[in-house]
């Protein structure tokens, strides 16, 4: 018998059940019952390890951060599109070593993912405090070099982590 942490068990089960309904799309009582059983069972099986503690404050702020990130993604997509369609192909790729002051691992993951998701910059290597970022040219790496992206993520996690 695994130790059951009943904390968030119902929350996890509910999330799984919503996913089930979304994917099955049928509202027969037999399907709903099957889904409810399966989601409760899965939530219970997974309750023993990986203490999952949702921090709703950070989730909310992350969701507010996403529209800004998306506007930057659209901006740099158009830039990279122009670079590719330019007959001269005016690229000057570089490897940048970016120091980060973010200490929270989730914050570093969010930073690396945001960099990779943005066309023109890609995270090639991460250790605790340095990211190696490959960039297509200097315009597309501007947000990374100026620390603007990192500042936004630091304000999501809100510990004043970026102060040097």
């Amino acid at each position: 018998m695994r130790p059951v942490s009943s904390q968030f068990l119902l929350l996890k089960a509910t999330a799984l059940f919503v996913l089930w309904i979304m994917l099955s799309g049928s509202f027969n009582w037999i399907h709903l019952l099957l889904g409810a059983t399966a989601s409760l069972l899965i939530a219970w099986i997974n309750s023993g390890h990986s203490p999952f503690v949702p921090n709703f404050r950070i989730w909310g702020k992350t969701i507010l951060f996403l529209p800004w990130l998306f506007s930057r993604i659209v901006h740099s997509t158009l830039h990279v599109t122009k670079l590719i369609l330019n007959p001269k192909l005016p690229i000057s790729p570089k490897l940048l070593h970016v120091k980060t002051n973010l200490r929270n691992r989730a914050a570093v993951v969010l930073l690396g993912n945001s960099i990779t998701l943005t066309p023109g910059t890609i995270t090639a290597e991460v250790d605790d405090s340095t990211l190696i970022v490959h960039t297509l040219d200097d315009v597309s790496s501007e947000d990374v070099r100026s620390g603007r992206l990192e500042g936004k993520i630091a304000s999501v996690f809100g510990n004043g982590d970026t102060s040097p």
Binding site: T116, P119, S140
Partner: peptide, 11 residues
Amino acid sequence: TRSHAVSITDS
């Protein structure tokens, strides 16, 4: 550099 082009696909 090609990986940058590929990331246009999903973005």
